[in-house]
């Protein structure tokens, strides 16, 4: 078990250390995730119903209101 965990650790450790093109790709992935989750999600993409209402009942009432007006 100890050896297995050690091998898994080394698989990732050596893999990341020896990356060449992979380093550039990881930079792109991290920038992309930052743009998505920090900039877009935090500033632009609020969950409309979650932000506006505190409970599911209020959300249901609002949507029924929208569907029947």
């Amino acid at each position: 078990m100890k050896n297995l965990l050690k091998n898994i650790f080394h698989l990732y450790y050596d893999g990341f250390r020896n990356m060449t093109l992979g380093k550039k790709l990881w930079v792109i992935i991290l920038i992309k995730l930052f743009v998505m989750f920090v900039i877009l999600k935090l500033f632009f993409f609020h969950d409309f119903l979650k932000d506006k209402f505190g409970t599911d009942k209020e959300r249901s009432n609002y949507v029924i209101e929208r569907l029947t007006r």
Partner: peptide, 17 residues
């Protein structure tokens, strides 16, 4: 994942429905 963001923000009636 951006599409899922859009469901909650732009298409909330749909997401709930």
């Amino acid at each position: 994942i951006i599409l899922e963001f859009e469901f909650g923000t732009n298409w909330s009636n749909y997401s709930w429905f």
